[in-house]
Amino acid sequence: MIGNLPFVACMVLIALGLWTLVFKRNLIKLVIGIGLIESGVNLFLVALGYVRGGVPPIYTYAPAGAPMVLPTPQALTLTSIVIGLATTALMLAFAVVIYRHKGTLDARKIRDLRG
């Protein structure tokens, strides 16, 4: 239980993002919630590849004999971070457009397809 505390922390982060998505109405807050979920998933992926007592998978002045952390989750998390950033920029652009057209950021009030 206590050994899995990093995983639990990642899941708490994801759950906070889900809470934001379910119970908040402001579009900016929804974007922040999606960002929280992204951060939680990225942290979880990196934490999955951790080896106890491991050093980063970089040989420049690496301590001899220490095990190395798995490199593949880190490389793919790098991809995931950039894609998350791109989607965040796109979502914020949509929020700007919605605010211009509707005059509000409340997700309840912009649910109709009029206008």
Binding site: M1, G3, N4, L5, P6, F7, V8, C10, M11, V12, A15, A47, L48, G49, Y50, V51, R52, G53, G54, L70
Partner: peptide, 13 residues
């Protein structure tokens, strides 16, 4: 949370 607790131990992938 259940999945996080029931996963493989941290640091032993």
């Amino acid at each position: 949370l259940f999945g996080a607790v029931a996963l493989r131990p941290f640091g032993d992938p």
